[in-house]
Design a protein around this nucleic acid. Sequence first.
DNA 1: AATAAATGATGAAACGTTACATGAAATAAT
DNA 2: ATTATTTCATGTAACGTTTCATCATTTATT
Lengths: 338, 338
Amino acid sequence: MKSEHSVPTMKDVAKEAGVALGTVSKVVNGIPVGESYRLRVEEAIKKLNYQVNSYAQGLKASKTYTVALLIPNTEEPFFASLVYHINLALLRRKYRMLLCSTDFDSDQEQEYVTMAQQNKVDGIIGLTYNPHLQIEENTPFVAIDRSMGTKIPCVASDNFAGGQLAAEKLADLGCTNVAFLRIGSSLDNEPNKRKAGFENGCLSRGLSYEMKILNDGDAYEEFESFLSEHIQDGKLSFDGIFCVTDRLAYLIIKTLRKLNLRVPEDVQVIGFDGIRPFQGTEYICSTIVQPVPEIAEMCVNLLLQENLSSKPPLVCLPVTYAYGGTTREPDSLFIRIS
Amino acid sequence: MKSEHSVPTMKDVAKEAGVALGTVSKVVNGIPVGESYRLRVEEAIKKLNYQVNSYAQGLKASKTYTVALLIPNTEEPFFASLVYHINLALLRRKYRMLLCSTDFDSDQEQEYVTMAQQNKVDGIIGLTYNPHLQIEENTPFVAIDRSMGTKIPCVASDNFAGGQLAAEKLADLGCTNVAFLRIGSSLDNEPNKRKAGFENGCLSRGLSYEMKILNDGDAYEEFESFLSEHIQDGKLSFDGIFCVTDRLAYLIIKTLRKLNLRVPEDVQVIGFDGIRPFQGTEYICSTIVQPVPEIAEMCVNLLLQENLSSKPPLVCLPVTYAYGGTTREPDSLFIRIS
DNA sequence: AATAAATGATGAAACGTTACATGAAATAAT
DNA sequence: ATTATTTCATGTAACGTTTCATCATTTATT
């Protein structure tokens, strides 16, 4: 005798409806069966409040409908946004997400890959930094922001175009002497192309520019000494800064204001990523916005191989510029020119 | 003949090691077996690169090691922080998280609960707003920030104490006439206690105060008219504001500064939650910080019933005050007094 | 040395699905 | 009216585990 509180199975439904097990399976999976059968089964399902056991399904199909997402830290706004959109794209396709915060740590990245494979995920999406990451041949993998060989597709923003756009915007906004700021990073990844793009943009617009790589440890001090090198008669020698991320831009802007330099009046600042302090509020600084929803959709598409004949090795998605208070507004620019 | 590329099973390991299936199972699960057997099995596991199929385990044990997390929007910083810490707490216990962004929508909340139960999750943690949420009797549920009856434990910050602390801080910082600001919300949840706590604090410290509930739609306009009502001879009649969230505080501060009111010189503002614009940077405003890691840990603990004899209906965790630039610093306060 | 007790490996059954070979019933063709 | 064909429900096997009764082996007891 079955306990009252045990979860009903297909067998129970079949008995209740007076049909065979296979018939119930067909009804559940939307495979056509005779009208009268379907109705009886549907009634029994409702009566018993039956729900399929997706783990039995997974066992049978050797598919788990689970995708692992490896990402440095899900609290950081840009990554949180990726998490949100990738999760949504997966849920829409009835897939689950196994979320792994790697904390930028190569060992943790490897551990999570191993764990994901033990959990028999159907694939992995990873924004990783470990250059020696070992991934099993038969586990589909899509990388974000980093090319990992021809077998693994990479999805990223068009970082080069983004850098270029930043330079062009600064030129349009009246800058003549600009700086590029980046925090040092050893790994060769897609976001590094922002620098080349910016340089290219400066050259084509005739901007005089300076590239500065700050050390991770003492970025503040380095920036301050960089500033003092560029002050002539109490006036800054450049009037525009492009920071490689909004995070850096935010810190730089704080520092500038602390030193009584006005943003955007004395120096305009453009960041990269498109971060807002809260949902629906304006951007934290003027910025090159990454198309996060599109990146998410593309990752999932590539991973699950939907409507794609061959995987391209690198997909770059278009970025846009957005005003965020740290550049002159088009309005005020107009006034200034007239 | 098994295909070369098929995933090895316990059966394969057993054959390779020349032992019984059950013996392999024991080795895998750390149940003691004879030394020689264990060694042979371990060798075979390594040779075949065997990994247990957790879905077969789940089927057998009718445990899925999965917990669903229902949360309005994982991009909003406070929720993103909860997601991060709950995910971590679950992974530490070898549990997976099924992340569900409900977008504050009652129907979506119900849909996700149903979906979670179909996925046979071992429990649900939910920060929800649907007052009629239907949850199956046998699905463990832990609520965040909302009491849902005696059968469902609720975890929250000590919101009352937080409100009180905000009033006390404003008093300590020299305020005499303060305001409480909240965006209207119909549901009776724990964060609403911030208001009562603040009122209590004002009374015990002899602060004159005003409580203002803004409408969700036109909060901006309402706030501006609220301000104009309180301006006497071009001077604000209050010198401190407690906003129910950092999100609201952020918007209020922007508005104040746009109206040329100086924060914190003219009016000091305290928010609630403890939001930072980026990981590791300072708080976005002076604030009452919620103990998110502790909330996460407590939720998981209660849900999985670890070392707990009976479930308390409501757990309130202690909050702290943190300086974030929108109140006078202790230093400057000292200067001011002397 | 013979029997009893303890130890521990064995392998079949079960978990809840899906897929497929089987066979029964209904329809079409002669 | 009989046979050929189609249609479609049936029920068993298999997915990869864990559990438990069974049985072989070793150790202890007399």
